[in-house]
């Protein structure tokens, strides 16, 4: 029997598979399709202090082997996430969930994280300092080591649960930012958020997306994600949650070899809603093929 178990920041996971924030809602749409308790956990829709509608539509464009989105952190706000979404989730998910948080000021991040930290269903806080689709916040906190460290410190000061900082690949030196977060007390790093990209419609000769630019994801970005995870693994000691273009059991193993302790799956959920369940089912066969007995033994194996 192969062993899929890993440990993420002190909390055990049955397997390293985690649907990524923004591609899995608050879980219950997918719970209509399969028992989502088969997942390691999942990262819920990016939550902010206040409710947000997000950007105007069109918010989606296709690319070769990928897509661009500019949803803009649409969410009902932290109060409603706690009073409405989490109780609904409890009906279909009995594991700890990863709470994904965004903000527009350091106080925002601290406020939202402090609220979610108190929720029994929340296992980890994933702090998104890397959303490319909002103005005056999001990614601007994740593009300088000092700002990323400030957010990390502020969140750590008001929370008790593991804090994982989600980093942007749209920077010159991602490892430097990861180190700054680690030094500021982060318990883990997740990466990569989407790459800033755009598409132009030849008929209208204008950007396809109303927000002009958006976050590029999908299989096309896997090599960039692997490179970033590899670099960050060399620079930090805290666990890494790897993501970006993962859509198969083979990709998961590759991501873990690069240095990921757990692996998130994003855009692939939107194309095949069963992809995470299928990957978990396929992992033992693929592990046997590559003579891997235990997934935790291969973390960072490529170094």
């Amino acid at each position: 029997m192969v062993d899929l178990k890993v440990n993420l920041c002190g909390l055990p996971l049955d397997n390293p598979i985690i649907p990524a924030s923004g591609t899995f809602g608050f879980g219950y749409e997918f719970a209509e399709l399969y028992d989502i308790n088969c997942l390691g956990t999942f990262s819920f829709k990016g939550t902010t202090k206040e409710a947000r509608f997000g950007n105007p539509t069109p918010r989606i464009a296709e690319t070769p082997n990928g897509m661009i989105n500019a949803v803009g952190l649409q969410n009902p706000g932290v109060e409603k996430v706690i009073s409405e979404e989490l109780p609904k989730l409890k009906q279909c998910f009995n594991k700890k969930v990863m709470a994904n948080v965004s903000g527009f000021s350091i106080e925002d991040y601290a406020y939202t994280c402090e609220k979610l930290d108190k929720e029994e269903q929340v296992g980890w806080l994933e702090v998104n300092v890397s959303c490319p689709n909002v103005h005056g916040g999001g990614m601007s906190f994740g593009t300088s080591p000092e700002m990323a460290a400030e957010v990390t410190k502020a969140v750590k000061a008001v929370t008790t649960k593991p804090v994982i900082i989600k980093l942007s690949p749209n920077v010159t030196n991602i490892a430097e930012i990861a180190v700054a977060c680690e030094n500021a007390g982060a318990d883990g790093i997740s990466l990569i958020n989407t790459l800033l990209g755009m598409r132009i419609d030849l008929k209208t000769k204008k950007p396809v997306i109303a927000n002009k630019m958006g976050g590029f994801s999908g299989s096309a970005i896997l090599p960039v994600a692997l490179r970033c995870v590899y670099q960050v693994y060399e620079a930090v000691k805290i666990p890494i949650v790897g993501m970006g273009g993962v859509s198969s059991a083979e990709d998961v193993i590759e991501m873990m070899l690069a240095g990921a302790t757990a692996v998130q799956i994003g855009a692939a959920n939107l194309i095949n809603p069963y992809v995470c369940r299928d990957i978990i089912k396929n992992l033992p066969t693929v592990m046997q093929k590559y003579r891997i007995n235990s997934l935790k033994d291969i973390i960072g194996g490529a170094h």
Binding site: T23, E29, G54, T57, R59, I60, A61, Q74, L270
Partner: peptide
């Protein structure tokens, strides 16, 4: 009609405001 990501409610790609809710 709207440009969609997933088509089943997961990605919020085709959101729209109505008089009562999003």
């Amino acid at each position: 009609e709207e440009r969609m990501g997933c088509g089943f409610g997961a990605c919020m790609g085709c959101s729209c405001k109505t008089k009562y809710k999003n």
